[in-house]
Structures are given as structure tokens and as C-alpha cells.
Design a binder for these strands. Structure first.
Lengths: 325, 325
DNA sequence: ATGAAAGCGCTAACAA
DNA sequence: TTGTTAGCGCTTTCAT
């Protein structure tokens, strides 16, 4: 490994001072075209890359943001939703010389690490209940944006999908197709995404029986056991709104094993448009990549100290009708 | 935001010098129990976290490793395989005060960034063909471990699953259950994982017709179009070995739409044991989390400069029989 | 076992 | 427009 060149060598080769090199590197004003060009050439010739650590230390910026998955299990990593968000985050980060640091541990460690100045801001997703992490970070002055509305309310900006409206549409589709006994497999009640989709179902079901609710944890297994319990409680159900495609996968397995045909006997509507299933799922589509981009854009703007930013952003959802309902 | 304390303040409060604090922090020897305790207390009292940038700059270590997804599309992010690996990586990283930096861009940027001393090592997964990135990093002296055998061969250590044996078992299961016209949906031929699973199928099929091969790209859509093409070429096929569950999802949709019953008309065996399907997939299971842990362990060992490390590790696979075959 | 002092490679304030 | 200078907060010899 050849020793890598420092900024001094670039300066020497370009015939200018370190400061000028630094200015060119950071796109600062007040640099002559002549100097700029000389520096550029020297950088290329030496294959120079600035030392990030030195940069952070001197510049008081970490040039990195954290993506915090506020869930010890790591369940969310397996969720297609997360994958899409991550793609969006990356896309938005491109060209910002900002690195993405992934974190998954417990609030204690994460909190002190993050507030410790190692990153310039944090994206917190999949936050449950009244997760103290969000307020902790916010109170410490670290720019934070939540992915999904935080239940605690408070002053943390967030980006979310319009889960309520999506759930209403999904349920209405079931109703208007003539289903009479419509159940729902809801998500965790300690997350806004779980609550909002359940509220949407309730809203659309107003006037009808709304006790057919079972809860899952956004895993196929959770969806399967919820479906089993619903089938036991109401064998004659003929429609289910499942609050996540990933849970619908489990539900479909159970329905199949129970000999129920989908959609003939039981119509199924999912949420996310994230998985190919048999039969293809009628579901509520959300643009997860856009979600990730929006999240990142918002955080970067916050870090730059932009004024008048919207406290929160709600992204639209839309029903996609396929075979399952 | 209260200004965060520096090492000097800890030193002052503990009544020792910066050096001693540093020693305690880094678990260095030659520190009295008395001093150690005093420092510990001061650290807690001040809620001190070391500045990572300063540490890297002075210590010539980045205290971070990169997880490089050598694929522009980001397809792999949506792959359950990747999610499992990432969980393993995190698990193994716990307690190593090492951060995980995720990278997805093009070889050019990534290469110079990585060799630029910003991370202490890199995990490269999903590398296609004769990806120059691996050799580039290796030649620059950066510790690297590949996830999945690199096609280029060369001196880069890697961790892989025993894809060949898994594929052989899967295919033998199909054969021994009496299937006569067995096809395969193979993965990309520019990746060892694609090649090895195909070789396993060929090996098990020796003596039989081996032209029923269609290729997919490890996406459900790829699996679907491969299945369509196979069905067209050989309508009477009665078994398929699909080189990835995620592709099997697409294949199952196509079979279902074509009115073929699984497993009655066509038996399907997948690979990965990563998705719940209808009907539940008979598949080759691999322990992806272990894969991630092994990968990380290997890289950390490499970074520590341990001697006599195995150049490569092959993890076992096993057949899980469910309903689809 | 402990402390003093010299950087690590950059940015930013200031001077010119 | 450019250069000089002083740190940023640690780790690490080298003394003691």
C-alpha cells in the first residue's frame, strides 16, 4: 500500500497553499480559475482523497448520517418496506459526500453515540411506542427525522405514508365487492402505522361489525397466527384487510391450508405492494423509495439549517387491484 | 445542546492525565486499579463519549468497516438473504466499537473512498463477474472479505454457502420423488452462487436431459419470466429446481396462473429458506445470519492481523421438505 | 504506573 | 484572491 498523499502534497504540486486546496475541495468562493485548475490536476495526478477523520475533526461535521433501526430484533431488515426506504436514502445521499451509518442497538448505546457528534443527523425508523430515543436526540440538538409518525407526538419532524386513507380505500374495496364479514389483521398498536391502518379499517366499516380484529407484528408468522385466530372466531368471514403484505403472506398460507379459496371464499387486501404472492395481492401501494428520499432530503435540509421546513410530510397511497380481492 | 466534555475534562475530574484516561478507554495495560476506577466514574458522571474523528485521526484506525453492495440496482437490498446477512454482521460487530458504513455506488467512487483510509476493512457482497473492486481493494492493502466466492479467484478470502451440495440434494429430492422432466431456474451466470447451484443441478441430473434451463436474476419477476419460458419449451415438465426462493415466488405465480397445481402437477424446490409461500416451499436452508457473522469475524480477524486464517469458509446447507415438492 | 508533548490532516479565522 | 496560523480531540512515543 503506497502511502496516500496529504493535502500538503497536493498544495505543493499545484503550487498553492493548503487553504486554497481546501477551498477548491469544498467549492468555496474566492478562488481563481487558474488555481482551481491546478488543484484539480494535482488531485487527479496524486489520486488524492481527503482524510475524512481530519475533515470531521477540523470542520466540526461528521459528514455522515445515521439510519437507526429502533428495533432490537432486526425484524425490519427483512421487511421489503425497509429495503425500499434504504434505496431511497442512498439515492438522495448521492452527491452529498455523506456516508450512511447503520445502527440497530439499544437506546442507551445508540443515544450516546449519536449525540456524541459522530453523525450530523439521524433518521429513525420503525420506532415503537413512546420510544425515548427520538426525544433524547432531539433534546440534545441533533437533527432528527422520523420515518413514520412517532406516537409520542412532540416536536420531531417526520415523513409518513397516508396509512389511514389507504386502509379506508382497501376496506371500501372489500365492502363494495359485496363482502359481508370483513376482518382485519392489524399491525402493532404501539406504532402509528399499526394504529392508523386499523383506524382506516374501522372508519370504512362504520355501521358494521368491527370486532373481527387480530394483531400481528409485521412478520409472516404473525400474519399466520392472526389469520388462524380470526378463522376460529368467525369461520364464515369472507374478507380480510391485512395491514402489511408481509403478514398477508402468512395469512394466505393459513387460508390455503384451511381449504379456503382466495378470492372466491375469502377476499384479501394487503398493504405496501411489496411482495409477489399466490394469488397476486390486491394491495395498497406506497412509493417506499420516495419515502426514503423524502426522509433524507428533509434531514439534510434540517442539517443545513434551512428555514420554514414543513414539520411533517404525508405521502399518498393508492389501491392496486389484482386477484386476491 | 450542552457542549460535550472532552478527554481533558474527564482527566481533570478523575485527577489523572489525558494519557491515563486514554489507556483506560482503550483497555491498555499498566494502569492502576485506582486510576481505572476514577476514570470510569468520571466518564459516567460526565456522560463522556470519545470523539470518533479525533480518535481515527490520531490512532490511524477508522473504527468502521464498510458493507459494500456491489450492485448498482439495489436489488440485493430487497433480498431476504441480504437482510439475514446484515443481522449477522451487526450481531458480530456488537462490542467491537466498530461502525457499519453501508455503500452502494459505483466502483470508482467506492474504490477510492475505501482505499482512502475511511474504513478499516470491507465486506463485499453480491459481487458480479470479474468485478475489479475486489482486487483493487486487496491490492491497495485494505482488508477485504467477500460474501460469496468471487469469480475472479485471486487472493481475496471469502465466505460462502455450499451451494453446489445444496443444489444436488434439492435435485435428488425431485428425482427420488419420481419426477421425470426436471427443469431449473438458474441464477445469474456471472455470480458463483448462480453457477454453483446450476452445477449442482447438472450433477444430480447426470444421465438425464439437462437442457431445461432458464435464467433469472434473483428477483420474483426474473423467476416468473423464466418459468414462463420453461413452460413454453416443455409443457410437460413436472419438476423445477429454482435457485432462489425469491425467484420461486414468481415461478409459483406463473404456475398458478397456468393452472398447474403444485406439487401435484409440478414439484418446486427452492433455495434459501427465506420466504413463506403458497404452498409452503420445499427448499434448501442456509443459515444466513451465521453467514454474516462468519464474514464479519473473518474481516475483524484480518484487520487485527491474525495469522493462519482460513482463506475461505464454506457453510453447510440442508434440505427442508415442506409441501411444494 | 503515569505524565508531557508532539503530532494525526484538515478547516477556518485572520492577515496580507 | 491567497497564505499563515491556530487549533479540532484524541493516541502515542518518550521520559520519569
Amino acid at each position: 500500500m503506497t502511502r496516500r498523499p496529504g493535502i500538503d502534497e497536493v498544495a505543493r504540486l499545484a503550487g498553492v497553499s493548503k487553504s486554497t486546496v481546501s477551498r477548491v475541495l469544498n467549492g468555496a468562493p474566492h478562488v481563481s480559475t487558474r488555481a482551481r485548475e491546478a488543484v484539480r490536476r494535482a488531485v487527479i495526478q496524486l489520486d488524492y482523497t481527503p482524510n475524512q477523520a481530519a475533515r470531521s475533526l477540523a470542520g466540526h461535521r461528521a459528514n455522515a448520517i445515521a439510519l437507526v433501526v429502533s428495533e432490537p430484533s432486526g425484524r425490519v431488515l427483512a421487511d421489503p418496506f425497509f429495503a425500499g426506504v434504504m434505496r431511497g436514502v442512498h439515492a438522495e445521499l448521492a452527491g452529498h459526500r455523506t456516508q450512511l451509518v447503520l445502527m440497530m442497538s439499544q437506546p442507551g448505546d445508540v443515544g450516546s453515540y449519536l449525540t456524541g457528534g459522530h453523525v450530523d443527523g439521524a433518521l429513525v425508523i420503525s420506532s415503537h411506542g413512546h420510544d425515548p430515543l427520538l426525544s433524547l436526540l432531539h433534546d440534545n440538538g441533533l437533527p432528527v427525522v422520523a420515518g413514520g409518525r412517532p406516537l409520542a407526538g412532540g416536536p420531531v419532524p417526520y415523513v409518513d405514508s397516508d396509512n389511514f386513507t389507504g386502509a379506508v380505500e382497501a376496506t371500501q374495496h372489500l365492502i363494495s365487492s359485496g363482502r359481508k364479514r370483513i376482518a382485519t389483521i392489524a399491525g402493532p398498536v404501539d406504532m402509528a402505522v399499526g394504529l392508523d391502518r386499523l383506524s382506516g379499517w374501522r372508519r370504512a366499516m362504520s355501521g358494521q361489525r368491527t370486532d373481527l380484529v387480530a394483531y400481528g407484528d409485521f412478520t409472516p408468522e404473525g400474519g399466520a397466527s392472526a389469520m388462524t385466530s380470526l378463522l376460529t372466531r368467525e369461520p364464515s368471514l369472507d374478507g380480510v384487510f391485512v395491514a402489511a403484505d408481509i403478514m398477508a403472506l402468512g395469512a394466505l398460507q393459513v387460508l390455503h391450508a384451511a381449504g379456503r379459496r382466495v378470492p372466491d371464499d375469502v377476499a384479501v387486501v394487503g398493504f405496501d405492494d411489496s411482495v409477489p404472492a399466490v394469488p397476486p395481492l390486491t394491495t395498497v401501494k406506497q412509493d417506499v423509495e420516495r419515502f426514503g428520499r423524502m426522509l433524507t432530503w428533509r434531514l439534510l435540509a434540517e442539517i443545513e439549517g434551512e428555514e420554514g421546513l414543513p414539520p411533517s410530510v404525508l405521502l399518498p397511497t393508492s389501491l392496486v387491484v389484482r386477484t386476491s380481492a
